[in-house]
Amino acid sequence: MEKVRTTVPEPIVNIIDLFLYYGKVEALKKIALDISRKNITSFIGPSGCGKSTLIRCLNRMNDLIENVTIEGCIRIDDQDIYSPAVDVTELRRRVGMVFQKPNPFPKTIYENVIYGPRLMGIRKKGILDEICEKALKKAALWDDVKDRLHANALDLSGGQQQRICIARAIAMEPEIILLDEPCSALDPIATAKIEDMLCDLKKDYTVIIVTHNMQQAARISDYTGFFMMGELVEYSVTSEIFTNPREKQTEDYITGRFG
Protein backbone atom coordinates (compact mmCIF):
# COMPACT_ATOMS: atom_id res chain seq x y z
CA MET A 1 0.00 0.00 0.00
CA GLU A 2 1.56 3.28 -1.06
CA LYS A 3 1.06 6.02 1.48
CA VAL A 4 0.54 9.68 0.82
CA ARG A 5 3.58 11.67 1.69
CA THR A 6 2.57 14.29 4.22
CA THR A 7 3.85 17.68 3.24
CA VAL A 8 5.09 20.04 5.89
CA PRO A 9 6.01 23.71 5.62
CA GLU A 10 9.70 24.61 5.24
CA PRO A 11 11.14 21.11 5.44
CA ILE A 12 14.64 21.02 6.84
CA VAL A 13 15.10 17.25 6.83
CA ASN A 14 14.01 15.00 4.01
CA ILE A 15 14.10 11.29 4.63
CA ILE A 16 13.70 9.42 1.39
CA ASP A 17 12.97 5.69 1.34
CA LEU A 18 15.26 4.80 4.20
CA PHE A 19 16.02 1.17 5.00
CA LEU A 20 18.23 0.13 7.88
CA TYR A 21 19.52 -3.31 8.75
CA TYR A 22 21.22 -4.48 11.91
CA GLY A 23 23.16 -7.31 10.33
CA LYS A 24 20.37 -9.14 8.53
CA VAL A 25 17.54 -7.81 10.70
CA GLU A 26 15.50 -5.12 9.09
CA ALA A 27 14.89 -2.34 11.60
CA LEU A 28 13.59 0.45 9.35
CA LYS A 29 11.49 -0.21 6.30
CA LYS A 30 11.20 2.41 3.66
CA ILE A 31 10.76 5.42 5.86
CA ALA A 32 9.85 8.58 4.03
CA LEU A 33 9.06 11.81 5.82
CA ASP A 34 9.95 15.48 5.96
CA ILE A 35 10.54 17.49 9.09
CA SER A 36 9.50 21.05 9.42
CA ARG A 37 11.92 23.77 10.39
CA LYS A 38 11.56 25.41 13.80
CA ASN A 39 8.79 23.12 14.89
CA ILE A 40 8.56 20.23 17.26
CA THR A 41 8.12 16.86 15.64
CA SER A 42 7.43 13.88 17.82
CA PHE A 43 7.82 10.19 17.07
CA ILE A 44 5.64 7.73 18.88
CA GLY A 45 5.17 4.02 18.65
CA PRO A 46 5.48 0.81 20.59
CA SER A 47 8.78 -0.31 21.99
CA GLY A 48 11.21 -1.70 19.47
CA CYS A 49 9.55 -0.10 16.47
CA GLY A 50 12.67 1.76 15.44
CA LYS A 51 12.15 5.31 16.71
CA SER A 52 15.59 5.52 18.31
CA THR A 53 17.12 3.89 15.30
CA LEU A 54 15.60 6.51 13.06
CA ILE A 55 16.67 9.57 15.01
CA ARG A 56 20.14 8.11 15.44
CA CYS A 57 20.32 8.05 11.66
CA LEU A 58 19.90 11.81 11.58
CA ASN A 59 23.26 12.49 13.25
CA ARG A 60 24.85 9.27 12.07
CA MET A 61 25.21 7.84 15.56
CA ASN A 62 24.56 4.46 13.99
CA ASP A 63 27.99 4.68 12.40
CA LEU A 64 29.34 3.65 15.78
CA ILE A 65 27.53 0.33 15.70
CA GLU A 66 29.09 -2.44 13.72
CA ASN A 67 27.19 -4.25 10.99
CA VAL A 68 24.69 -1.52 10.27
CA THR A 69 23.65 -1.12 6.64
CA ILE A 70 21.69 1.88 5.52
CA GLU A 71 19.92 2.30 2.23
CA GLY A 72 18.07 5.32 1.02
CA CYS A 73 18.85 8.92 1.59
CA ILE A 74 18.59 11.59 4.28
CA ARG A 75 18.98 15.20 3.31
CA ILE A 76 19.46 18.03 5.72
CA ASP A 77 19.28 21.42 4.08
CA ASP A 78 19.40 19.59 0.78
CA GLN A 79 22.64 17.86 1.50
CA ASP A 80 22.86 14.09 1.62
CA ILE A 81 24.34 13.44 5.06
CA TYR A 82 25.54 9.99 4.08
CA SER A 83 27.58 11.20 1.14
CA PRO A 84 31.31 10.68 1.62
CA ALA A 85 31.93 14.42 1.42
CA VAL A 86 30.17 15.03 4.71
CA ASP A 87 32.26 15.58 7.81
CA VAL A 88 30.55 13.54 10.49
CA THR A 89 31.75 15.65 13.40
CA GLU A 90 30.53 18.77 11.61
CA LEU A 91 27.17 17.09 11.07
CA ARG A 92 26.90 16.17 14.73
CA ARG A 93 27.56 19.75 15.67
CA ARG A 94 24.63 20.81 13.53
CA VAL A 95 22.39 18.01 14.78
CA GLY A 96 22.59 17.81 18.56
CA MET A 97 21.30 14.87 20.53
CA VAL A 98 20.00 14.19 24.01
CA PHE A 99 19.76 10.61 25.14
CA GLN A 100 17.13 8.69 27.00
CA LYS A 101 19.31 8.25 30.08
CA PRO A 102 21.05 11.37 31.37
CA ASN A 103 24.73 10.93 30.57
CA PRO A 104 26.64 13.93 31.86
CA PHE A 105 30.40 13.55 31.82
CA PRO A 106 32.02 13.07 35.21
CA LYS A 107 33.21 16.66 35.15
CA THR A 108 31.94 19.93 36.54
CA ILE A 109 28.69 21.42 35.35
CA TYR A 110 30.62 24.15 33.61
CA GLU A 111 32.93 21.73 31.84
CA ASN A 112 29.97 19.64 30.73
CA VAL A 113 28.21 22.55 29.12
CA ILE A 114 31.22 23.95 27.29
CA TYR A 115 32.50 20.55 26.19
CA GLY A 116 31.34 21.08 22.62
CA PRO A 117 32.42 24.71 22.21
CA ARG A 118 35.83 23.79 23.58
CA LEU A 119 36.14 21.06 20.99
CA MET A 120 35.39 23.63 18.32
CA GLY A 121 38.46 25.48 19.51
CA ILE A 122 36.97 28.23 21.63
CA ARG A 123 39.48 29.02 24.34
CA LYS A 124 38.57 32.46 25.66
CA LYS A 125 37.18 32.21 29.14
CA GLY A 126 34.83 35.14 28.64
CA ILE A 127 33.19 33.64 25.60
CA LEU A 128 32.92 30.22 27.20
CA ASP A 129 31.35 31.71 30.33
CA GLU A 130 28.83 33.48 28.19
CA ILE A 131 28.00 30.35 26.20
CA CYS A 132 27.61 28.40 29.42
CA GLU A 133 25.28 30.92 30.97
CA LYS A 134 23.16 31.24 27.84
CA ALA A 135 22.83 27.49 27.40
CA LEU A 136 21.98 26.89 31.04
CA LYS A 137 19.37 29.64 30.93
CA LYS A 138 17.78 28.14 27.85
CA ALA A 139 17.73 24.75 29.54
CA ALA A 140 15.96 26.34 32.53
CA LEU A 141 18.76 25.31 34.83
CA TRP A 142 20.65 28.53 35.39
CA ASP A 143 18.85 29.46 38.59
CA ASP A 144 19.41 26.02 40.05
CA VAL A 145 23.13 25.82 39.45
CA LYS A 146 24.52 29.30 38.97
CA ASP A 147 26.18 29.17 42.39
CA ARG A 148 27.84 25.86 41.87
CA LEU A 149 28.98 25.75 38.28
CA HIS A 150 32.14 24.03 39.39
CA ALA A 151 30.48 21.24 41.27
CA ASN A 152 30.48 17.79 39.76
CA ALA A 153 27.58 17.30 37.38
CA LEU A 154 27.00 13.82 38.76
CA ASP A 155 25.94 15.34 42.08
CA LEU A 156 22.82 16.80 40.49
CA SER A 157 19.42 15.13 40.46
CA GLY A 158 18.34 13.06 37.49
CA GLY A 159 16.15 15.81 36.08
CA GLN A 160 18.90 18.38 36.48
CA GLN A 161 21.35 16.02 34.86
CA GLN A 162 19.06 15.65 31.89
CA ARG A 163 18.82 19.41 31.59
CA ILE A 164 22.62 19.58 31.73
CA CYS A 165 22.65 17.26 28.77
CA ILE A 166 20.18 19.48 27.00
CA ALA A 167 22.22 22.57 27.83
CA ARG A 168 25.28 20.76 26.56
CA ALA A 169 23.54 20.16 23.26
CA ILE A 170 22.22 23.73 23.05
CA ALA A 171 25.64 25.17 23.75
CA MET A 172 26.68 23.89 20.33
CA GLU A 173 23.98 26.06 18.73
CA PRO A 174 22.78 23.21 16.55
CA GLU A 175 20.10 23.60 13.91
CA ILE A 176 18.32 20.45 14.95
CA ILE A 177 18.00 18.92 18.39
CA LEU A 178 17.17 15.23 18.69
CA LEU A 179 15.74 14.05 21.98
CA ASP A 180 15.31 10.34 22.61
CA GLU A 181 12.72 9.97 25.40
CA PRO A 182 14.30 12.75 27.43
CA CYS A 183 11.69 12.60 30.16
CA SER A 184 11.38 8.88 30.68
CA ALA A 185 13.30 8.99 33.95
CA LEU A 186 11.85 12.19 35.30
CA ASP A 187 9.06 13.19 37.62
CA PRO A 188 6.10 15.29 36.36
CA ILE A 189 7.54 18.57 37.60
CA ALA A 190 10.88 18.10 35.88
CA THR A 191 9.01 16.88 32.81
CA ALA A 192 6.89 19.99 32.77
CA LYS A 193 9.98 22.14 33.02
CA ILE A 194 11.59 20.38 30.11
CA GLU A 195 8.43 20.63 28.08
CA ASP A 196 8.24 24.38 28.67
CA MET A 197 11.80 24.65 27.69
CA LEU A 198 11.27 22.72 24.47
CA CYS A 199 8.43 25.02 23.52
CA ASP A 200 10.82 27.92 24.03
CA LEU A 201 13.54 26.25 22.01
CA LYS A 202 11.21 25.93 19.07
CA LYS A 203 11.76 29.61 18.35
CA ASP A 204 15.34 28.97 17.31
CA TYR A 205 15.70 25.27 16.73
CA THR A 206 14.10 22.35 15.01
CA VAL A 207 13.22 19.81 17.65
CA ILE A 208 12.64 16.11 17.10
CA ILE A 209 11.51 14.17 20.13
CA VAL A 210 10.85 10.50 20.72
CA THR A 211 8.35 9.85 23.45
CA HIS A 212 6.20 7.14 24.93
CA ASN A 213 3.99 9.67 26.58
CA MET A 214 1.00 10.38 24.33
CA GLN A 215 -0.06 13.45 26.30
CA GLN A 216 3.39 14.84 25.97
CA ALA A 217 3.38 14.40 22.24
CA ALA A 218 -0.07 15.94 22.05
CA ARG A 219 0.88 18.85 24.30
CA ILE A 220 4.09 20.03 22.77
CA SER A 221 4.54 18.78 19.25
CA ASP A 222 3.38 20.31 16.02
CA TYR A 223 3.81 17.17 13.94
CA THR A 224 3.65 13.57 15.01
CA GLY A 225 4.82 10.40 13.37
CA PHE A 226 3.53 7.01 14.45
CA PHE A 227 5.78 4.04 13.87
CA MET A 228 5.22 0.35 14.09
CA MET A 229 7.50 -2.58 13.32
CA GLY A 230 10.00 -0.35 11.58
CA GLU A 231 7.44 1.32 9.40
CA LEU A 232 6.02 4.81 9.43
CA VAL A 233 2.32 4.20 9.80
CA GLU A 234 1.06 7.73 9.91
CA TYR A 235 2.57 11.17 9.91
CA SER A 236 0.72 14.46 10.10
CA VAL A 237 -0.14 17.50 12.18
CA THR A 238 -0.37 16.48 15.81
CA SER A 239 -3.93 17.57 16.42
CA GLU A 240 -5.06 15.53 13.47
CA ILE A 241 -3.30 12.36 14.61
CA PHE A 242 -4.78 12.57 18.04
CA THR A 243 -8.29 13.60 17.10
CA ASN A 244 -8.77 12.12 13.72
CA PRO A 245 -6.27 9.40 12.84
CA ARG A 246 -6.39 8.04 9.34
CA GLU A 247 -5.16 4.56 10.21
CA LYS A 248 -6.80 2.00 12.41
CA GLN A 249 -3.45 1.02 13.98
CA THR A 250 -2.80 4.60 15.03
CA GLU A 251 -6.18 4.90 16.61
CA ASP A 252 -5.72 1.63 18.50
CA TYR A 253 -2.38 2.71 19.76
CA ILE A 254 -3.28 6.18 20.98
CA THR A 255 -6.46 5.06 22.60
CA GLY A 256 -4.54 2.41 24.43
CA ARG A 257 -6.15 -0.60 22.85
CA PHE A 258 -2.82 -1.75 21.57
CA GLY A 259 -0.43 -3.83 23.67
Binding site: M61, P104, L119
Partner: peptide, 8 residues
Protein backbone atom coordinates in the same frame (compact mmCIF):
# COMPACT_ATOMS: atom_id res chain seq x y z
CA UNK B 1 27.99 8.48 22.69
CA UNK B 2 27.42 11.70 24.59
CA UNK B 3 30.83 12.87 23.49
CA UNK B 4 30.44 11.76 19.89
CA UNK B 5 27.05 13.45 19.70
CA UNK B 6 28.75 16.74 20.54
CA UNK B 7 31.00 16.40 17.53
CA UNK B 8 34.01 14.87 19.20
Amino acid sequence: EGSYALGA
